[in-house]
């Protein structure tokens, strides 16, 4: 299968989402540094706290989520905006959450690492490796209730060294559950390179240990991700069990905003630019004559306008009332 066999509207939808993710993340980054200088104060400014952005990793989210419906679950990581956008989470409310506002997805109680949208079956967690067993739980619920949806657990290459990853792979394989384990391999667990943390060259090889398919795919090519993800989703929907996908991507930014990245060799930054999935996709679409510069420019303008509206909504939204901090630990509000 190649790009020619994918309908144009699907390709443009993918491009639109990838470009939206990039625009969104870069806009957030600008807002993030407001008020944080001259001394970097992480709690200051309109976006308080840590911020882990996803530029360079758009293909993993879009190549996977293009195959998913609202009922399918995605459980992401601390770096999850790209998956949230690809899954269709309401961006105004998500952004308000990131800004700590009352109109946020969780009324400002979760923040950027703990996004939750029940209508899109999207959640994420700040604990590395927490997503894997929870996706198994979604899979088991789907299977027991005869629902035909799938669960996608996202983790970084660092998370694949957690025990939860291996326990969850075993459980999902043992019980033949509709779960897809997606490892976004950006080569770095914060500052530790993969060859200093991981005993195998590719995390997809670990699928062998659990008797399930494991595929490694170049994240520079969103079409390749699309194809691999399609197969895994179809396999899960057919009731044939889980798959493991490793998408090799590059971080175009630091682990977190403010990360000086002194640990990263120069060549790695160059490779990251070369492997930029958005630019590669744009080039492909133009070279194959699938679209025109004008059409792409129109999409870009739409995205820029939308992102501006989203940010405006978040900025103008009120902060939650202080007493809200005491509510909602248990059912019934107390």
């Amino acid at each position: 299968m190649g790009v020619e066999e994918i309908p144009k509207e699907t390709l443009l939808e993918m491009y639109k989402k990838m470009h939206k993710i990039r625009t969104y993340e870069e806009t957030l980054a600008k807002w993030y540094y407001e008020g944080k200088t001259p001394l970097f104060d992480i709690s200051a400014g309109p976006i308080p706290g840590e911020l882990h952005l996803s530029p360079g990793q758009e293909s993993a989210a879009v190549g996977m989520c293009i195959h998913l419906k609202d009922e399918d679950a995605v459980i992401g990581t601390h770096r999850a905006h790209h998956f949230a956008i690809a899954k269709g989470v309401d961006l105004k409310r998500m952004t308000a959450e990131i800004f700590g506002k009352a109109t946020g997805l969780s009324g400002g109680k979760g923040g950027h690492m703990h996004l939750f949208d029940a209508s899109k079956n999207f959640s994420c967690s700040g604990i590395v490796g927490a997503s894997f067993p929870q996706a198994v739980g979604v899979g088991i619920a789907a299977k027991l209730k005869g629902e035909n949806y799938v669960a996608v657990a996202v983790g970084g290459d660092g998370a694949a060294n957690q025990g939860t990853f291996h326990e969850a792979l075993n459980l999902a394989a043992l019980w033949k559950l509709p779960v897809i384990f997606l490892i976004e391999d950006n080569g770095w667990a914060i500052s530790v390179p993969k060859d200093k943390s991981t005993a195998v060259a590719k995390n997809s090889e670990r699928a062998k240990a659990y008797g399930i398919p494991g595929v490694s795919v170049d994240g520079a090519d969103v079409i390749a991700v699309y194809e691999v993800a399609k197969e895994a989703v179809e396999r899960a929907r057919r009731g044939e069990g889980p798959s493991l996908i490793e998408v090799r991507v590059y971080r175009l930014r630091g682990h977190f905003e403010g990360d000086p990245q002194a640990y990263r060799p120069k060549e790695d930054f160059e490779l990251a630019k070369e492997k930029d999935p958005l630019l590669n996709f744009e080039k492909l679409l133009l070279e194959k004559g699938i679209t025109t510069e004008e059409e792409l420019n129109r999409i870009k303008e739409e995205n820029e306008k939308e992102v501006q509206e989203i940010i405006d909504f978040a900025v103008k939204s009120p902060y939650p009332e202080p007493e809200e901090a005491l509510k909602g630990v248990f059912a019934g509000g107390e």
Binding site: P133, V136, G137, V138, A141, K145, G163
Partner: peptide, 18 residues
């Protein structure tokens, strides 16, 4: 695999189906 199956219970509960 306590992390595995207790995490499974958490995920299953979160769906509201179980």
């Amino acid at each position: 695999a306590e992390s595995g199956f207790i995490g499974t219970a958490v995920g299953a509960a979160a769906t509201g189906l179980l």
